[in-house]
Write a protein that binds this DNA or RNA. Structure first.
Length: 568
RNA sequence: GCGCCCGUAGCUCAGCGGAUCAGAGUAUUGGCCUCCGAAGCCAAGGGUCGUGGGUUCGAAUCCCGCCGGGCGCGCCA
């Protein structure tokens, strides 16, 4: 057991005499090294309850805990400081043991073993298959994938899922757009509606559509002034004109887009265990089933020809339509069925990663779960804020309508996968992200990705000097005595706990910050001390420390989907 | 108008009850390569943590008001 946990455990024992209640013991690492390696404010917490002098309480706990602490052999004597803080210093040799641990555990250093692994489903990206992924999806992808890896590393069984919105009007509009481009390529004079998808990718798909039976003439005259109505008119016209051909266009367009997104994500090192289809929810009757269940529980009602879910009974602002007057299910109806299905598949916990613009949907989806009698607390919704790109200090215009949006692919090609992945998680997910393209591209110390990777490459290059050398059997860490060396060892020891916290808080960004800090401390050490010294025992010890740093950097980078290069 | 998120150094952001919490990067200024990679290091200046109250022994952190910014409030997806 590592010293911090041991300290916590013993203090808890010592504090029992004052309070039988379960205490949350927060053990801090003081910023000021004068105050030891770990500090506890337990006496201050107790003083509130007991209305007693905290300093006195601290003295008593210190006295009670002293024998147990001494028995571990890990610590210097406990001291009472300030208003009643309990400070403790770990013996250097105990601190250094982590180096051996890192080297033994290798790629698994930091992995948390849990007694019972929680099964978690995490759904992310879930972009409409109506266009290429853009930089907003990229952030969801980077966040979701890193979080999934973190959760796994922290002992959970994780299923990554992409929900494909392959049913509904948006897909129809894509299919229509493809067909119209297809006709245009055959020199047919057809209108292209305002609301159609105008991107070049639509032309690309149309060009690959080798099905001459779709070149049918249709009467396009009689355009409607209302853009929405016009689209519906055209979709209807296409369906009537093409018959079965409509399904072929639809399917072709869908598969082309899915392939594009899948390939893009794979290149971004993001993969999924399952792609779930919205259409399948319709086809398999899951939507009917879910609505019947709600009906049976008395949560649906009809009004104005439509079917409504009484979400206002579960904290939503108002009730929501699940089946429109025209008989069509709303997107929300699919979502209800999908979320019911998620829990019926047996996950302990479900995490949805959504764009922050969808936050208004949280109450209704949670409300639906509650209506099913499920605990809405088992569904977590992580809202990821928008990413805004900057070039030369200028904000880049974005917007689907204008067709000017920057795709994830363009971003990856411009700054590289490593920089993109790292930059995306360098901010708290619920914080707007200003993505500085110039900085992400710069091959300089300004660039935090290179900074961390460079620390890794530096260690590799030291080992490259002594190719063939191996650690002695009786490796001694004792020669490591400098403050920098002890600090590094302690930083390494923090890694497993950081993993746990980052996973629990769903906060990959804290891992990115940790890595930057570890890299900084190594760079500082590297500049201050020479690793390849003549003294063999000292050299071996320093090499061991360096190798442990390298391993920890590599493990952390891998969780963020960033490579750990040997040379740069 | 209502709801959610966010206001911390010139800029981009961590910290989100603990005194030992005013921090990082960047920018600015000044130093460090006959020596394992200078994509690096060392140092300096720079902030009443938007604002006004409240709770507390203690508030950047929790609560309320106000100001400023983002997003959302469809029988759209």
């Amino acid at each position: 057991m590592d010293p911090k946990e041991k300290f916590r455990e013993i203090l808890r024992e010592g504090a029992l005499r004052f309070s039988a209640e379960e205490l949350t013991l927060s053990i801090e690492r003081p910023a000021n090294p004068e105050h030891g390696d770990y500090a506890s404010n337990i006496a201050l917490q107790l003083s509130k309850r007991l209305r007693r002098n905290p300093r006195q309480i601290a003295e008593e706990i210190a006295k009670a805990s002293a024998p147990a602490l001494a028995a571990t052999g890990l610590f210097e004597p406990l001291t009472v400081a300030g208003a009643g803080f309990l400070n403790i210093r770990v013996k250097p040799e105990a601190k250094l043991e982590v180096i051996r641990q890192v080297l033994e555990q290798g790629k698994d250093y930091g992995r948390v073993k849990t007694e019972k692994e929680e099964s978690i489903q995490i759904e992310f990206v879930s972009a409409n298959p109506t266009g290429p992924l853009h930089v907003g999806h990229g952030r969801g992808a980077a966040y979701g994938d890193s979080l999934a890896k973190l959760l796994e590393f922290a002992g959970a069984r994780v299923t990554r899922e992409f929900y494909v919105n392959d049913a509904g009007r948006q897909m129809d509009i894509l299919a229509l757009s493809v067909w119209l481009r297809y006709l245009q390529m055959r020199n047919m004079d057809v209108p292209f509606p305002e609301e159609g998808y105008r991107g070049d990718y639509v032309r690309d798909i149309a060009a690959r559509l080798a099905d001459e039976n779709l070149a049918r003439k249709a009467d396009f005259s009689g355009a409607l002034p209302d853009a929405d109505a016009e689209i519906d008119r055209l979709i209807d016209l296409a369906k009537r004109t093409l018959g079965d051909g409509w399904k072929r266009v639809h399917r072709f367009a869908l598969e082309a887009m899915l392939a594009d997104q899948r390939e893009d994500l794979a290149a971004f090192r993001v993969s999924f265990d399952q792609w779930s289809s919205e259409q399948a929810l319709h086809d398999n009757g899951l939507i009917d089933k879910a609505l019947r269940l709600l009906q049976a529980r008395g949560h649906l009602f009809e009004q104005g020809g439509a079917l409504w879910f009484r979400s206002s009974a579960f904290g939503d602002e108002k009730d929501r339509v699940v089946r429109r007057e025209n008989g069509q299910y709303t997107y929300f109806a699919s979502d209800i069925a999908y979320h019911l299905d998620k829990f019926e598949r047996g996950f302990d916990r479900v995490i949805d990663v959504w764009g922050a613009d969808h936050h208004g949907y949280v109450p209704r989806v949670k409300g639906a779960l509650e209506a099913f009698g499920l605990d809405p607390g088992r569904l977590e919704i992580a809202l990821v804020q928008f990413a805004v790109l900057y070039r030369n200090g200028e904000k880049l215009a974005m917007g689907k309508r204008s067709g000017e949006f920057v795709t994830l692919r363009e971003l990856r090609e411009e700054v590289g996968n490593d920089a993109a992945r790292f930059f995306y998680v360098l901010r708290k997910s619920d914080q707007h992200l200003d993505f500085d393209l110039d900085l992400a591209k710069s091959e300089s110390s300004d660039n935090p990705v290179y900074y961390v990777q460079y620390a890794h490459a530096r260690v590799c290059s030291v080992f490259a000097q002594i190719e063939g050398w191996d650690f002695p059997k009786n490796l001694s860490l004792e020669p490591l005595k400098s403050d920098r060396e002890l600090l590094l060892a302690q930083r390494l020891a923090e890694f497993p706990e950081l993993i746990l916290t980052a996973a629990r808080e769903r906060a990959p960004h804290s891992l990115a910050f940790y890595l930057r800090e570890l890299a900084a401390e190594f760079h500082s050490y590297y500049n201050a001390e020479r690793i390849l010294v003549d003294d063999e025992t000292l050299r071996s010890a320093r090499l061991a420390l360096s190798a442990a740093v390298r391993q920890t950097l590599a493990n952390g980078l891998s969780l963020l989907g960033v490579s750990a290069p040997e040379k740069m």
